[in-house]
């Protein structure tokens, strides 16, 4: 690879298409933000669910696609985020202001947990995270102040006009999803993103060139917990109640995994596309009960085996497209 023999290449990060994408993104964000003025609450409700799913998918993908950590227990932090909002609102704080604190609480809780689970790999890590989530659920069941097994209702929004509440919930969800996407993108474009990619591709090699693996994994784990916590906080705000059995359900992990598998693991764009696909499947099969998870699960399994790079792998390669260019384009210089 010496300079004299290697053909000269041009290395660039953003392409013109990426810059147009940025403009389009800003326009899209503005359009989405004005949505509550245009449509009814049933539509914004749909979007709230979409943004929650997107947040979960993107942060799960950060864990699995960039740090090689397949978690089946992110629902632990969904629950922590939701119950944190419940407690803070019970103390008189506005639930909307409590959302970032829910994310923060999840992040803080994830630090001690990370010391147990992060030295595990593969199935060990997957099931250990799952058992942590189960333990949280069982602990909440034994806490009458949190509603135990029957669940608890969120106070603090009772007097608010439903239309206003729903609009604010929508904006909060939009803000969380946008912050998650932008945050992940910025994170991956830093030196840290390169470290992560190096770990994913070859952990031993990464260590030998001085990547501090445990620290990098811990940062990702905590960031992903914060994302899940924010999603949980949004869930309780939009549903106005919380139940341990459903907020700590492994179903959430299934959603995240399917979103990432269908969209494409290890890209920023993949989970967006995956969330869209998942959402469309969910909506179109909504009348058919359990069938939608059978279909979505089967699709995800088949994608994982035969199209491991997901929908985005197909689309992005086809059109040489990057919405969030975290890598580099290497082309022969003309």
């Amino acid at each position: 690879m010496s300079e004299s023999t290697a053909p000269s290449v041009r290395v660039s990060r953003s392409r013109r298409s990426s810059i147009w994408m940025l403009v389009a993104g800003v326009v899209l964000l503005a359009a989405l933000a004005s949505l509550p003025y245009v449509v009814y609450a049933n539509v914004t409700d749909l979007f709230v669910n979409f943004f929650i799913l997107l947040t979960l998918g993107v942060t799960w993908n950060l864990l699995a696609g960039y740090a090689g950590l397949v978690s089946v227990g992110q629902q632990a932090y969904i629950g922590v985020g939701a119950y944190a909002v419940l407690v803070l609102a019970g103390d008189g704080m506005s639930p909307f202001l409590a959302i970032p604190l829910g994310a923060l609480t999840a992040a803080i809780v994830s630090i001690p947990v990370s010391f147990i689970v992060l030295h595990l790999r593969g199935a060990y890590f997957a099931i250990a995270t799952w058992v942590v989530a189960e333990s949280f659920r069982l602990a909440v069941l034994r806490a009458p102040s949190l509603g135990g097994g029957t669940g608890a209702t969120l106070y603090g929004l009772a007097g608010v006009d439903p239309a206003v509440r729903e609009a604010f919930t929508y904006w909060a969800a939009l803000a969380v999803a946008a912050a998650t996407l932008i945050g992940c993108y910025v994170l991956l474009r830093t030196r840290f993103g390169l470290d992560l990619t190096a770990i994913r591709d070859n952990e031993v090699g990464a260590r030998s060139v001085g990547v501090r693996i445990m620290q990098a994994k811990r940062i990702v784990y905590v960031v992903a917990a914060a994302g899940a916590g924010a999603a949980g906080a949004l869930l309780i705000v939009s549903q106005l109640n919380v139940q341990a059995a459903s907020i700590f359900s492994v179903q959430w992990s299934a959603y995240m995994i399917f979103v990432a598998l269908i969209g494409g693991i290890g890209t920023v764009e993949g989970p967006i596309l995956g969330t869209l696909a998942f959402f469309l499947l969910q909506q179109s099969l909504a009348e058919r009960g359990a069938w939608y998870l059978i279909v979505v699960g089967a699709v995800a399994v088949l994608m994982a085996m035969f199209v491991p790079r997901g929908l985005w792998g197909l689309v992005g390669d086809r059109f040489r497209l990057r919405l969030f260019p975290t890598g580099y384009w290497v082309r022969p210089a003309r």
């Binding site: 089967a298 994982a304 085996m305 491991p308």
Partner: peptide
């Protein structure tokens, strides 16, 4: 992938 597929 085995983990993800068996989970699915």
């Amino acid at each position: 992938t085995t983990l993800l597929v068996t989970f699915g």
